[in-house]
Design a binder for these strands. Structure first.
Length: 715
DNA sequence: CTTGCTACTCTTTTT
DNA sequence: GAGTAGCAAG
């Protein structure tokens, strides 16, 4: 308890006021690095430790499972580990999954429902399109799915779905079929977890009462990233006691594309007129230089309440803005600079992060790290749980847990190859549908027989499957895992003698560890847990190596040194978001989030060229770079037109004809006197070519291709 | 039913 | 340029 009091002493007066706020509706609005999560954690510890609230009466919603785990550990330190076991802490999705399993009967669900990830969801959309005889080429499954997801995030059922365009008309029809398939497979998608929970609480007064009575205090982290469905859920649960404590920052709202609506902040004010709003402006993370840069970028967004970020940490070094030739040289610069920083003891490798807009940008970076023999941590990209071998093994476990899961069955019924082809599977599926039972039942009852080899293979598979299902009750998750691997033939199939096969097998073994560690967790719960892990959840805290991650994944994290790469128009802001001011505003917030991850040093990198679809093109610097005041950067990025202006002159020099004519914008060239440069423009003249080049050392020049001795460099 | 070839999309961001 | 879907041949 003394420890707890000392901890509260460590907060400033405003933070402490927030922690000790009265139990009414409260919103803490605060900038980055202000200790929002710390305030939330402290409040829970305060409620348990000093106010004597029973832990099971507190529900806290975090954005990732990692955040939940850290919060639980921290609270354990403050009030004792025995008091954190009953705390309901988790993401919206994990909390809803638990609730729905517990109340499955009343929700009209089978408690062993599968949770379909993005991949599975797309297969269901494809199946729905096929059922409706719609062309995948014409209606892209991803777009249809986005429309369905958007509807679910706003709690719109297929029946309520209003189409305002022909595309939406189609989407509405697919939505209905999509949901029907999910139900037939006894499966929920991510969005269903929230939507079904809201539906349950709204339609079932008994369950609703039970939940409301139980959760005396509801706390929400990253409130700006909640969508309408999540907001509705919060209101439902916090209904009776009205002890609702939300923490957020509208400037860090970067998930509008998946339904997050920062106007929930406004709704909260409307729905709770007695809302207490507490603003925290003090920053404990970054230097003033970094905060000034962040503010100068975010200030350009319209309709926002400005939070003036200030710190006691001094100014620190200026922000380094660098122009590099392409992604490869950019990556090389990152690696070289990291080596230098580490050598100078300016930072440990583990305190450094490299951030980018899209996952694809990690590749040149990875190659540079590998070339330099420098270890690194990669968050996201080919996600562990999205790997083929992992999804296959999980599919085996899913059909055991939930025999109705046809998406998983289809995935593995012929992996390894058993001679059960598309046709055979389809017939089996049709029979099951006609009888209204699962494929397992069909096989068990011998109501379906295929001729010849396929028939025998099917019979054998059915017997195996039935045996696994029987063993499910007797074996732990880990034991079942081993048994399935042994008896399915998957191990021999995977380990085909190739190095790649061994890699994949290693991944399966890593999953096996997770299964073994699950102990006596129920199979359904184990599968829930692995379906809902996020990328940062797998982040290895202990490794002392730089981290590579997207700007989205970086939210909530901080690093001593941050590199942001690829700061060019079309990447950040992304080309798909250029026409809509709302979307530009979100890209700007993304830049803001990136900048404010840095504690001490920030590097902003701009490549002159970017490659895409095999070839590459010249770029313009990101508009966000232009917003940085001279006082915070050590050099200013220039637009391509500005690069030429400085010293543009005709240069007539050694009369040596150029070896290769035809220069293109973006070519890297070398000149005997000016060194290396970049072609920005090239105009053919009568029997020559006028080339405008930005030389990295000598500045802009206009040259004759034939006369100047300019040469193209191999890339 | 499996294998191997060709043609085509694809790049946001994620629970 | 790569990964995959779709198709034809074995």
């Amino acid at each position: 308890m003394d420890y707890m009091l000392a901890f509260l002493e460590g907060l400033n007066s405003k933070q402490r006021a927030a922690v000790e706020a009265k139990d009414g509706p409260t919103l803490v609005l605060a900038g980055p690095g202000s200790g929002k999560t710390r305030v939330l954690t402290s409040r829970i510890a305060y409620l348990i430790g000093l106010r004597g609230i029973a832990p099971y009466r507190i529900m806290a919603v975090t954005f990732t499972n990692k955040a939940a785990r850290e919060m639980r550990d921290r609270i354990a330190q403050l009030v004792g580990a025995s008091k954190t076991a009953d705390l309901m802490i988790g993401t919206f999705h994990s909390i809803c999954a638990r609730l729905l399993r517990r109340e499955a009967a009343r929700a009209g669900l089978d408690r062993d429902f599968s949770i379909y990830d993005a991949d599975d969801q797309l297969s269901v959309v494809k199946a729905a399109l096929a059922d409706l005889k719609l062309d995948e080429k014409k209606y892209k499954p991803a777009s249809i799915h986005a429309a369905i997801s958007a509807a679910k995030n706003e709690l719109i059922t297929p029946e309520e779905y209003r189409a305002e365009s022909y595309f939406q008309e189609i989407a509405g029809r697919v939505y209905a079929r999509y949901n029907a398939i999910l139900r037939a497979n006894n499966a929920l998608d991510f969005d269903d977890l929230i939507m079904e929970t809201v539906r349950l609480l709204r339609s079932d007064p008994i369950v609703c009462e039970r939940v409301r009575e139980r959760y005396l205090h509801v706390l929400v982290d990253e409130f700006q990233d909640t969508n309408l469905a999540q907001y509705a859920l919060i209101k439902l649960i916090a209904g009776r006691h009205r002890s609702l404590f939300c923490v957020g920052d509208a400037d860090q709202s970067i998930y509008a594309w998946r339904g997050a609506d920062y106007r929930n902040v406004l709704r909260l004010r409307e729905d709770y007129p007695d809302l207490t709003v507490i603003t925290l402006e003090q920053n404990y993370r970054s230097t003033q230089t970094i905060l000034d840069a962040a503010m100068s970028v975010i200030r350009k967004n319209p309709n926002r309440i400005h939070i003036n970020l200030s710190t006691q940490r001094g100014h620190g070094p200026k922000i380094a803005v660098r122009e590099l030739f392409n992604e490869d040289e950019e990556a090389q610069f990152v690696v070289d600079t990291i080596e230098e920083l580490v050598r100078q003891k300016a930072a440990e490798p583990g305190e450094i992060a490299v951030m980018y807009r899209t996952n694809a940008q990690s590749r040149p970076l990875e190659e540079a790290f590998i070339r330099a023999g420098m270890p690194y941590r990669l968050v996201g990209a080919t996600r562990f749980y999205a790997r083929k071998e992992i999804k296959d093994v999980l599919a085996y476990l899913r059909i055991i847990n939930n025999p109705a899961d046809a998406v998983s069955l289809k995935r593995i019924i012929n992996v390894p190859p058993r001679g059960i082809g598309e046709k055979t599977y389809e017939q089996l599926q049709n029979t099951a549908q006609a009888l209204g039972v699962s494929c397992l039942d069909v096989l068990n009852r011998g109501e379906f027989s295929a001729p010849g080899r396929a028939g025998r293979a099917l019979q054998e598979f059915g017997a195996r499957w039935a045996q696994w299902v029987r063993l499910r009750g007797e074996l732990s998750v880990g034991q079942l895992f081993d048994y399935v691997l042994q008896t399915s033939g998957y191990e021999e199939y995977l380990r085909d003698g190739s190095a790649e096969g061994e890699d994949r097998w290693a991944n399966v073994l890593a999953l096996r560890n997770v299964a073994v560690e699950a102990g006596d967790t129920m199979l359904s719960e184990f599968l829930s847990n692995v379906a809902l892990v996020s990328d940062v959840d797998n982040y290895d805290e202990t490794a002392n190596a730089p981290t590579l991650l997207t700007l989205h994944a970086a939210k909530g994290l901080e690093f001593k040194v941050v590199f942001i790469v690829g700061l060019v128009e079309g990447v950040l802001p992304h080309s798909r978001n250029l026409d809509d001011p709302e979307q530009i505003a979100e890209e700007r917030r993304l830049m803001y989030v990136g900048i404010t991850r840095a504690k001490e040093r920030l590097y902003l990198l701009r490549p002159f060229r970017r490659s895409q679809w095999g070839d590459s093109e010249i770029t313009e610097p990101s508009r966000f770079l232009a917003d940085l005041p001279d006082s915070v950067v050590d050099s200013k990025p220039r637009k391509n037109s500005e690069l030429l202006q400085a010293t543009a002159t005709w240069q007539s020099a050694p009369a040596k004809p150029s070896a290769n004519s035809r220069f293109k914008p973006g070519d890297k060239v070398v000149h005997p006197r000016f060194g290396q440069g970049l072609v920005l423009r090239s105009t053919p003249t009568r029997d020559d070519e006028e080339v405008e080049v930005f030389f990295f050392d000598a500045g802009g020049k206009r040259l004759s291709a034939a006369m100047s001795g300019l040469r193209k460099l191999k890339e």
